[in-house]
Design a protein around this nucleic acid. Structure first.
Lengths: 127, 127
DNA sequence: CAGTATCCGTGTTGATACTG
DNA sequence: CAGTATCAACACGGATACTG
């Protein structure tokens, strides 16, 4: 997420980093489908593949940041046990769509990238 | 950039992180305009605003990663003093355009974000 | 369930010095 | 000029324990 001295960065860079942050990307993409509850979101994202999932802490942090930026809407129902639904705001939806597009592109071009890597690695294996 | 255990992440997530990494974003956007030499790129990006600039190390790392992924082309001329030009590949240009779009969107919506933040902060200042 | 608070390992970052 | 190598700091991310 990057929160430290990045307060010193130009504001828009900051938002960009929130949006493109490790978990920010996944949260936005998931919420594009439908609203999610906290744990539900956690499970879904964790199952996403690769490394282990999000810690509660990181998911909380990510959601709070995105909420503060006005991209995510938090709806806490005053019931017991607690129930909180997260969804995208209009602003958030715009961002999420861009992110999804980039993510999609990456998947589409994966073959080219892998090929490029192979070429690169072979070239320097010949040292 | 993120290079550690992220080797364990699904490959496309990895590329996505390269592309959206702190300096990766700026490199791609700058190279969209024209080719740059190493130091030139370093100065331009550093002047970008906010925090201090890229360290040589980080710029090198970023460029190497992007080159390996086939997004950036490195043209090292065998002269003294050394001269190396960096430019986008076709693949890189596609990525860069997406990134620029996202970056542009962020700038455009900055006002809304700032407003949202203010609202958010005020709401919780009333604690 | 949905968080908060705290602590700690480790990776990423960046200064600095050096090389071709 | 265009890097590489080394080292130290610090922030990030996660595990754990606790709360409403």
């Amino acid at each position: 997420m990057a929160v430290s001295e990045k307060e010193a960065l130009c504001p828009y860079r900051l938002v960009l980093e929130h949006v493109t942050s490790r978990w920010g990307v996944l949260v936005l993409i998931e919420l594009l489908d439908r609203p999610y509850r906290f744990s539900e979101l956690r499970r879904t994202i964790s199952a996403y593949g690769g490394g282990r999932g999000v810690s509660e802490k990181m998911l909380t942090q990510t959601l709070q940041t995105l909420e503060r930026d006005g991209l995510v809407h938090r709806d806490a129902k005053p019931v017991i046990p607690p129930r909180v639904d997260y969804s995208l705001t209009g602003l958030g939806r715009e961002a999420a769509e861009q992110v999804r597009a980039l993510s999609q592109w990456t998947r589409d071009r994966m073959d080219d990238v892998e090929k490029a890597r192979q070429t690169y690695d072979e070239a320097r294996a010949a040292s």
